[in-house]
Design a binder for these strands. Structure first.
Lengths: 115, 115
DNA sequence: TAATCAATTCGATAGTTATCGAAATATCGA
DNA sequence: TCGATATTTCGATAACTATCGAATTGATTA
């Protein structure tokens, strides 16, 4: 099933997206920077699209650095950026985090009885 | 509670360990290197403790590099290393991956209705 | 003890990246 | 069009790290 665009289900019902190993690495790298992770937390906790100004107010970084981090999160496919005139709004991309979780969860399924 | 998988997989029922943000970062960094991730996959899939020789046979890296990666995984708390005389054996540390999953899962809980 | 094998440590190198200020680009309001 | 504001790009720097060969430590065996 080739993921029809029609299934734009509202909130918590996102299926995990399948991730190639290259994309998995990109996502993990994006998450591995503390500031970037904090930014992503802000975006996630905001629920509604987060403006760059709000993001900037929360993080002690320059505009150039924020732009860099946003691009990293975007190219990793972790967030969507809606560019609306002068302002940009950031949202978590549905299903991606669940896709990562699926990969990580598969790692510690079976274990040796003798531990 | 979505513990549907737990019943058919005996040993994987470890509770998620609570992770500080510093440790979360260390773990994500450890996972963000592709070779290291592959090493961890090997350890996980082996189930039983994996010898360094087997690990080395699976990865095209020198002994020095393998040693480095093992230390990274160990200091991040992702694996345990049982040192038995001349040989070292690697196992996945229980609960840690689940702890990370818990953090990541908490990120995309609620979302804006307007998408 | 000497030889051997497993793993670590050392020293060096090459590639990556987080960070910033300054300059550039883009959008909006007057 | 002009000026103000938002974001990006550029150029540079500092810090980090993956990698290796060589030397070293540590354990086993002859």
């Amino acid at each position: 099933m080739r993921a029809t665009v029609a299934e734009k289900l509202p909130a918590a019902a996102d299926r995990p997206i399948h991730l190639t190993s290259a994309r998995r690495t990109a996502i993990l790298k994006a998450l591995a920077d503390p500031r970037r992770f904090e930014l992503l937390e802000r975006i996630a906790k905001a629920g509604c699209p987060l403006g760059c100004a709000e993001a900037r107010a929360a993080l002690p970084i320059s505009a150039a650095t924020l732009s860099h981090h946003i691009k990293e999160l975007e190219t990793a496919g972790l967030i969507d950026v809606r560019r609306e005139g002068k302002f940009h709004f950031l949202t978590l991309r549905p299903g991606v985090m669940q896709g990562l979780i699926a990969i990580l969860g598969a790692l510690d399924t079976d274990r040796c009885p003798e531990s």
